[in-house]
Amino acid sequence: MTERKRLMIIDDDPDFVAGMRAVLDAAGYETEVAYNPKDGFAALKARPHDLLLLDIMMGRGAEGVMMARKIRKDPALEALPILIITGIREQIAFMFPGQAVHPNFVPLNELIEKPVEPDLLLERVAALLKAAEARQPQGT
């Protein structure tokens, strides 16, 4: 059996995180949480992660978007798959129903809406991890 996948969660709502984390933990993932973008970015830089689950509306606005763009510009993190989990379906997801997030918004991501049904969450996490592995077969 391969090593447990390590997931980073950045979301400013501890109760929401608790509900989501319980599902991910039960499915055998190792999860780490940061409750603001600053701590989250530091944690991502400190040790490698296999996937980031990122909230959009944090702090004074859509800080999650800034965060995702920053990650994409960072040579050490640019390949990290990002799954956006957001409550603002109206502004973003509705424009692209059933599609990956618009390339002009944040590249290479997927977006699901809060709250997320456990089966859907686990399926998306597994799919993104698999896609990332296929891109980098030797692993790091």
């Binding site: 709502d13 109760d15 929401f16 608790a18 509900g19 409550g87 809060k114 997320v116």
Partner: peptide, 14 residues
């Protein structure tokens, strides 16, 4: 309004 409801729902799911 949605943020707390999403947190509640996520915990109900779990």
């Amino acid at each position: 309004l949605k943020a707390p409801l999403a947190a509640i729902q996520q915990n109900l799911y779990a």
